[in-house]
Amino acid sequence: MADSEFGEARFEIGAVISRAFETIGSNIVLFCGLALVLAGIPQFLLGFWQATNIGLNANLVDGSYFFTSAYWTPILVAMLVGVVANAILQASLTRATVMSLSGETPQFGPCLAVGISLILPMIGIGILMGIGLIVGFALLIVPGIILWLVWSVVTPAYVQEKIGVLEAFSRSAALTSGSRWRIFLTMLIVLVLIWVLSIPVSFLNAAMTATGNLFLVALVGGAVNALYSMLMVAVQASVYVELRQLKEGIAPSDLEAIFA
């Protein structure tokens, strides 16, 4: 890993993860509200529809149900809603995280408004990243991981710096240069933590599935999706703040002045 031009400073994994959790904790209502509305509810509705319709449809015996519009229409609608909702969530929570880390108090309405105003470019970023990662992972996985690290702060760079979509990809590559292994370790720690937390949830989910309570099964799925989404966005934004401080000497408290 290359040292920062500002002395011996380096990317601090503990500080990044700690800031992400502190940000969520100090704005728990805002983060949970946005995540539940934009990630939890769409996942719950899709999960509940799948559990009730697929589980009860007699045409599953010969597989004909999977080739009907009754099956594909709700799924395509849910996917479209999910793409739009995720775009809003990414931008909204990124803005909230950076505001909080800079000492400001993020509010639900303004953060949501930022997310809504950036729907189209955020969808574009998601499509470009998706295509790139699919190709990368198809090439023996490693190129996909590298691209994932190179583009790990595309969203916060775009939301915070008001730059173009393609410029955000270049900006992310420049910011992450020299720190990608530590970013990888950061993301790995977070993913392992999520996996550990998912173990009791899996047992709970299995128990509810055994009782046949499809509503609760879908509800847990939606809650888990909301938790995962808000945690990953907060960590990515925290990584971005750390990189700005490391590479450019910009303290978190100065980011809002730059945004304004």
Score class of each variant (00 low, 15 high):
Leu46Met: 13
Gly47Met: 03
Phe48Gly: 11
Phe48Ala: 11
Phe48Val: 13
Phe48Met: 11
Trp49Asn: 08
Trp49Gly: 10
Gln50Phe: 10
Ala51Asn: 06
Thr52Cys: 06
Asn53Glu: 10
Leu56His: 13
Ala58Asn: 02
Asn59Ala: 14
Asn59Leu: 08
Leu60Trp: 00
Asp62Thr: 00
Gly63His: 00
Gly63Phe: 00
Ser64Asn: 04
Ser64Glu: 00
Tyr65Trp: 07
Tyr65Cys: 03
Thr68His: 01
Ala70Arg: 06
Thr73Tyr: 12
Thr73Asn: 12
Thr73Leu: 14
Pro74Gln: 03
Leu76Asn: 13
Ala78Leu: 05
Val84Trp: 03
Ala85Arg: 09
Ala87Lys: 06
Ser92Ala: 13
Thr94Gly: 10
Arg95Trp: 13
Ala96Asn: 05
Ala96His: 04
Thr97Leu: 08
Thr97Trp: 02
Thr97Ile: 06
Leu101Gln: 15
Ser102Asn: 09
Gly103His: 03
Glu104Asn: 15
Glu104Gln: 14
Pro106Ala: 06
Pro106Arg: 04
Gln107Met: 12
Gln107Pro: 06
Gly109Pro: 08
Cys111Asn: 11
Cys111Tyr: 07
Leu112Phe: 10
Ala113Pro: 08
Val114Trp: 03
Gly115Ile: 01
Gly115Tyr: 01
Ile119Asp: 02
Ile119Cys: 08
Leu120Ser: 07
Pro121His: 01
Met122Tyr: 02
Ile123Pro: 08
Ile123Asp: 01
Gly124Lys: 01
Ile125Gln: 04
Ile127Cys: 09
Ile127His: 10
Leu128Val: 15
Gly130Lys: 05
Gly130Cys: 05
Gly130Val: 10
Gly132Glu: 02
Ile134Asp: 07
Ile134Trp: 05
Ile134Phe: 12
Ile134Ala: 15
Phe137His: 06
Leu139Ile: 09
Ile141Glu: 02
Ile141Gln: 01
Pro143Tyr: 00
Ile145Asn: 02
Trp148Lys: 12
Leu149Met: 03
Leu149Arg: 04
Leu149Thr: 07
Val150Thr: 11
Val150Arg: 12
Ser152Met: 03
Ser152Trp: 01
Val153Tyr: 00
Ala157Pro: 12
